Simulated assay, not measured.
Amino acid sequence: MTTILVTGGTGTLGRHVVELLRADGHAVRVLSRHSEPYAVDLREGGAELDAALAGVDTVVHCASSPRGDEKAARNLIGAARRAGVGHLAYISIVGVDRVPLGYYRTKLAVERLIEESGLGWTVLRTTQFHDLVLSLLQAVAKVPVMLLPAGVSDQPVEVAEVAVRLAELASGAPAGRVPDMGGPEVRTFPDLARAYLRVSGRRRPVVNVPLAGKAYRGMRAGGHLAPGNAVGTGTFEEFLERRLTS
C-alpha cells in the first residue's frame, strides 16, 4: 500500500483526488493550513511539514495561492527530499509558458523547481475548471451589464475528470510532463455567459470590451487553450445544471 500526501487536499481539486486515492486503497494524508493532523502552511515549512512527509512515498501538489507559491514549492521540495519521497505530481495550467499573467509565471516557475528538484516528477497542465469560469461569470453578472473581454475563448474542463487523471498519474511511476488535458469544447466567453444566464434564469445584456496588454493578447491568441487535447467529456451546461439547479 502506497502512502500519498495531497497538498490542498480539502480544495476544489484536492478533495476529489483524496477520495479517489483512498477508494483505490492508498493511505492518504491530507495537508492544508486548517486540516488536522497535517495542518501546515507550506509557505512556512518547518518541523510540522517534515512530520507530515515522514514515510510518504508520493506527493500530489494541488495547493495553490495567489501569493507565495514559489516559496511553498521550495519548502515542499526540500522536505520531500529529506523524507525520501519518490514521486512528486503537480497540477499546472495550460498556457503558463505562453500567456504572461503573473499567476501563470508563478505556476511555470514552480514547474521548473519541480523539474530541477532531483525527485521523480509528473506535471499535468489542464485548461480552466468549470468552477472558475462560473465564479468569473457570477462576478461580472453582479452589475446590470456583463462586460466580457472581446475575442477571448475558453475551454473549461470538469474538475472531477481532472481528479481521475491526476490520481491515475499519482498512482503510477514518475512520467515527466504529460499531455495537456482540455475540456470538450472551445467556447467564446459570450457563449459561456449566455449559457450561465439561461440556466440561472437571469437576464443581462452581454457586451464585449476590448482590453490591452500582453496577457490579453496571449489569451486572444488562444495560448491558454488545448484544442488538440480536448479529452474532457463534461460540458459547461451539464456542470451548470448540477451546480445551479440541484
Rank of each mutant, 00 (worst) to 15 (best):
M1C: 12
T2P: 14
I4M: 03
I4S: 01
L5S: 09
V6D: 00
V6A: 00
T10R: 11
L13H: 06
G14N: 08
V18T: 03
R22N: 04
V40H: 10
L42D: 02
R43M: 04
G45V: 09
G45C: 05
G55Q: 09
D57M: 07
V59T: 01
V60F: 12
H61Q: 09
S65M: 02
R67M: 13
K71F: 07
R74M: 02
N75T: 01
G84P: 05
G86E: 10
S92G: 06
V94F: 05
V96R: 11
V96D: 10
D97H: 13
G102F: 14
Y104S: 02
T106C: 00
K107Q: 13
G118H: 12
V123W: 08
R125K: 07
T127Y: 04
V143S: 08
M146N: 09
P149V: 06
V164E: 13
L166T: 11
L169D: 08
A170G: 11
G172W: 08
G176I: 15
M181C: 12
T188M: 07
F189L: 15
P190K: 06
P190L: 00
R194T: 01
V199K: 02
V207P: 00
A212W: 15
G213N: 08
A215W: 07
R217C: 03
R217H: 12
R217G: 04
G218E: 01
M219I: 11
A221Y: 10
G222V: 01
G223S: 00
A226M: 05
A226K: 08
E241I: 02
R242F: 01
